[in-house]
Design a binder for these strands. Structure first.
Lengths: 329, 329
DNA sequence: CTTTAGCACTCTTTTTGCTTAACTGCTATA
DNA sequence: TATAGCAGTTAAGCAAAAAGAGTGCTAAAG
């Protein structure tokens, strides 16, 4: 069991370390606790016994352990209010409601990265409940058309369609009509299947140059499946923190930020705001990740902040929460 | 004047240094030049006198100066053929012609970054000769519509339009008709002006709730001007090179990569492939930038590779050239 | 006139020992 | 239970020493 004084001590040490990035000595806390350094040392030793504090070497001050941060986040930290400045900077983004959702999210997370000096990550994809509402085909020249697909949720994708030579406009028109008729209402991830098993047979019968035409449209439409977009911003911000003063560490972390396959893995399915401290995440032991899932109008994904383990957890949580709430509206 | 042997020596030193990243000593070149180290030292001293070589300290081997690299690039280096592997990796991208141009460029530059370990940058924008060919408005729900604008060059942009409450569908329809009629053929960068001075007066007369409706569309359509998209990929690749083993240097370079306003500045207007060595670019004295302008179908921009000054200039040039040629087609 | 051998000199890099300052743990005492 | 005091540990900074890699210069040889 942890006493009230120990709790207060842990809180002070965590917050002091977050601020200064230096191990906290017993002497430094005397005034605040109105007792001698020896007393503090005794309490520190207890907290170390519980695994909540660590020393960097035998005679160093104390630093929170992963378990210590976890205890702080779960049991000590209180929900924080955003400062006026934070709200002002972010409010601009969401008041401009002609921005497409994904742009608004990216921009706001960019700002959060600037405000906090942490790295912002946004993963997005069109969710599976997007069904095709409208297909528009616009001819550009004899061989090229732009196909635009709009879903019932307002998601838009466009593709080039390259029409082989020697095909009559009539035939192209007929194929478009066939596709249009059969594809409305189909979910994005089923488009390839529907083209192959429903559209193709019809085209085969009704159109002369069926093979070439079908292929042209299949190429364009076969990849509407769930592609995850990846945005990583403010990697250099993170490296300003003093714990990243080692070249190999920097390289290893940056390598991960550059690897979009790896980044896609930080996807979060939980609707709450989750914190992954040190070894709890896959990026680096000195790093914490705070993230949450979002869904709105057929777009879903994850927003995440990557900071040092010495992250201002309360503020980071408040910022993510603010953005999440604004996405919801 | 520079003798043939000096030219060959410079070539050997540059290429050796590019390979090993270590100052080249006179002894190391004895075998290749079939003479003693003292002879090499004499020639090296001449080249240093010409400003083509440098020493890192009094008793070190030689390293090319910026001027030396420049001489190498301009007068010694020969155009290089791409390896089969390079061609194979890149060919896949361009054979898939349903990819929208900007995606094809981004993907191929990503691959180039992987192949070379340099950082790839792609700047793109819709060029000024894009004129609106079609406006499509798709209702999503009572208050929200998606407006899609397609230009004669095949460029597509979409925006949310939020319709205020209490406006009849008829009025919305009429506004869309007015906009559609007046906006076709207008260049993207003139849209805001045309809306304000040609569309607004007509709407004011013809529609009841003109103010609110006009604003809704103006918000959505006013920013079609030239926005430059920015892609930076493979920053961590670059940092693998041994010259970037200093934390402050890494931070300074990464800071610039993160600053999209700065990155936009590396825009190149020259149609040829240009090399900016060391102090000739704004990123870092140890860095070279090789880049070129591209234009195709209403999209224009810059593709660039950022590498150490010890860059394999020949290969980098060949890769950029390959992509440029494939964009052209 | 060009090339070479030889040698003194310079500068970097690595290792080592030393000193100082910042802490802690422990023990004895209030 | 809290405190004062002291011995012990470690990091960090600094200077000196030793080793290694190259150069420039001079004088002699081709």
């Amino acid at each position: 069991m942890i006493t009230d004084r120990q709790k207060k001590l842990l809180k002070t040490i965590v917050e002091n370390y977050i601020k200064t990035a230096r191990p906290v000595s017993s002497k430094a806390l005397c005034k605040r606790f109105k007792c001698s350094s020896a007393t503090i040392r005794n309490e520190m030793a207890s907290l170390e016994g519980l695994g909540l504090l660590q020393k960097t070497h035998t005679s160093s001050g104390r630093v929170p352990s992963d378990k210590g941060y976890r205890y702080y986040v779960d049991n000590i930290m209180k929900p924080e209010e955003l400062s006026d400045e934070d709200v002002m900077r972010l409010g601009q983004i969401f008041s401009n409601n002609s921005l497409v959702l994904s742009d608004a999210i990216s921009k706001s997370m960019e700002i959060v990265s600037e405000l906090t000096n942490y790295t912002a990550i946004v993963l997005g994809r069109s969710s599976d409940d997007n069904r095709i509402a409208k297909v528009e085909v616009v001819p550009i020249d004899n061989n090229k058309m732009i196909a635009i697909v709009i879903t019932d949720k307002g998601h838009v994708e466009n593709r080039n369609v390259t029409i082989p030579d020697n095909i009559s406009k009539d035939e192209v028109k007929r194929v478009i009509e066939i596709i249009d008729k059969l594809i409305i209402g189909v979910s994005l991830s089923d488009v390839a299947k529907v083209l192959e098993f429903e559209v193709k047979p019809v085209i085969d019968k009704a159109v002369k140059q069926h093979e070439a035409l079908y292929n042209a449209f299949y190429n364009a439409f076969s990849d509407f499946g769930p592609k995850q977009s990846v945005m990583v911003r403010g990697t250099s911000n993170l490296l300003k923190e003093p714990e990243f003063d080692d070249v190999d560490k920097i390289r290893s972390i940056l390598n991960k930020f550059d690897d979009h396959d790896f980044i896609r893995n930080i996807k979060e399915d939980d609707d709450g705001i989750k914190v992954y401290i040190g070894s709890e995440n896959q990026i680096d032991d000195d790093i914490s990740v705070i993230k949450t899932y979002f869904y709105k109008d057929g777009e879903e994904g994850t927003i995440a902040l990557v900071g040092p383990k010495r992250m201002e957890y309360g503020r980071a949580e408040a910022l993510l929460n603010y953005i999440k709430e604004n996405i919801g509206r």
